[in-house]
Nucleic acid binder design. Structure first.
Lengths: 190, 190
DNA sequence: CCTTCACCGTACCGATCGGTACGGTGAAGG
DNA sequence: CCTTCACCGTACCGATCGGTACGGTGAAGG
């Protein structure tokens, strides 16, 4: 999956940007080629097909989220609640960034609803991975159902991501923080 | 926007089904025509364009959600908390139904990220309407920030809808109910 | 029986989709 | 200086996109 040539790298960068901003289905390979300043064949020298390019794009989008979990763990060791808050804050901050257009993985799943489609499969698998990592972060908390809390927080984040595309980014970011805090507290009290 | 002819009605029904199940961008007018048992020109006798057909589809999908709010109001008059629970339960039940594929309005916004696109505009406006109606339902509750609670609940529902497409429907439905309950309670206590 | 007219589907439109055959170019190596 | 070879873009492929021109058909009305 590693793209070696510089041309391939540029194509891939342009594709990621366009896929995220306009959606995978909405972007044609001709547009990617034009904005990359290369011919279409150059794209197919680095990638088997548009589908594989999309899959590669999806895979790359998951990395930062995973890194945040590690960062949170490193930032507040031995304080699981602070770690959780750290992660939620990072997600809320990302929402507030200009140009934010929701979670690329979730968007990909919506664009390709067929669960057997390679793009959907890839995005879904990465989401499941992420959920599991989130659950591990929640696990040390003194709560009765950490798995449940993790799933609810994940849902809340997903909701904030989508709401940003429909309503307001600031409102969604603030609501995410507050709702997550309330949810966590409701699990901690007793 | 009213479709009068029986042919138009059938086309519209088929289009709604396909748009919801496979996505608006993924479905071509030729497929709609074929599955409706009519020629393509018959579609354009009832609808100006595919875009207008998509807008009509989006508009129709909002009606049931609006009806649920009224139903909840009628089912438990003078008990706003029960009304809220009623609505959440209805949304959770819909998630559990086979063939559920998330909120058609939210999906449309993801498929057409450009906020000026007619489909996105229409879906967004209806979502805003719905949020306002939800806020009116929450308003009578003895809480400090009913607007905030309404927005968080909306986010939670959105998250459950998306999570259903990525993870499991049952898990999302259950988590939606529990998280909503916890959120509401956290606003009511004190 | 003939005309009218609403309605319909075949067959087509140009544009764009993802993808490729192939000739050209430029640096490396003899 | 000539050959080799990796790399590239032009120009094209068939398929499909949304949309339409137009000839055919069948019931209503005289």
């Amino acid at each position: 999956m590693e793209v070696r040539s510089p041309t391939g790298q540029r194509v891939w960068g342009v594709a990621c940007d366009l896929f995220y901003r306009e959606g995978i289905r909405a972007v044609g390979v001709a547009e990617i080629a034009e904005r990359s300043g290369v011919g279409k064949p150059s794209i197919y020298r680095s990638f088997e097909s548009k589908e594989q390019l999309a899959v590669t794009y999806v895979q790359a989008q998951a990395a930062p989220s995973h890194a945040w979990l590690d960062a949170a763990r490193a930032a507040c060791p031995d304080d699981p609640k602070a770690q959780l808050r750290h992660v939620i804050d990072a997600l809320a901050d990302r929402i507030s960034e200009p140009g934010f257009r929701g979670c690329p993985l979730a968007n990909a799943c919506v664009e390709f609803p067929d669960r057997d489609h390679p793009v959907h499969r890839t995005a879904g698998a990465l989401k499941a991975e992420y959920l599991e990592m989130l659950a591990e972060l929640v696990a040390p908390l003194p709560v009765r159902d950490p798995q449940g809390l993790a799933y609810m927080l994940q849902m809340l984040v997903e909701g904030a991501n989508v709401s940003t595309q429909i309503f307001s980014a600031e409102r969604s970011a603030a609501a995410l923080k507050e709702a997550a805090e309330r949810l966590i507290r409701s699990f901690m009290d007793r």
